[in-house]
């Protein structure tokens, strides 16, 4: 009789332990999921910026191609606000080249960050998957008990 009570008690403590464990795990899962969505938002933002820079790079390259086709004495104007200002061909050429250089460097930097973020995202996904499995196995065990 006394033994029966004892085993009953043990089972009860086990259930409360696993349920508190479960709650902890679920809380952890929630925070990890939040982290993941934050990472995904960052990646999306990065992609947008990257797209903008790629478009600018393409435009600048087109301009450079045009400038290269010109003769030495061609008149080049730069739009500054509402006015067109005459500019040296050499100066314009150097300007566009510098811009292309800058944008390329920026693109490279963005590539690096995106790669970094994606790696983080994948590892977060892994941990979330593992947490899911743990919770599921715990729940299955609880269901049996």
């Amino acid at each position: 009789m006394s033994e029966d009570i004892f085993s009953c008690d043990l089972a009860a403590t086990k259930v409360t332990m696993s349920s508190s464990n479960l709650r902890d795990l679920q809380r952890e899962l929630e925070s990890k999921t939040n982290d993941l969505s934050k990472l995904q938002k960052d990646i999306a933002k990065n992609h947008q910026v990257r797209k903008k820079y790629t478009v600018q790079l393409g435009e600048n390259e087109l301009v450079l191609k045009e400038l290269d086709l010109l003769r030495e004495d061609a008149n080049v104007y730069k739009l500054i606000g509402p006015v067109l200002v005459k500019q040296d061909l050499a100066e314009a050429n150097a300007n566009v080249r510098k811009r292309i250089e800058y944008i390329s460097a920026e693109l490279k930097r963005l590539d690096g960050t995106v790669q970094d973020l994606e790696e983080k995202q994948n590892s977060k996904k892994d941990t979330i998957l593992k947490l899911h499995q743990k919770i599921q196995s715990l729940q299955a065990g609880k269901g049996k008990a």
């Binding site: 010109l70 730069k78 500054i80």
Partner: peptide, 12 residues
């Protein structure tokens, strides 16, 4: 005057 983009215009 041709607008070639990024604010540059070229006389042609």
């Amino acid at each position: 005057l041709v607008d070639v983009g990024t604010g540059y215009f070229i006389e042609k």
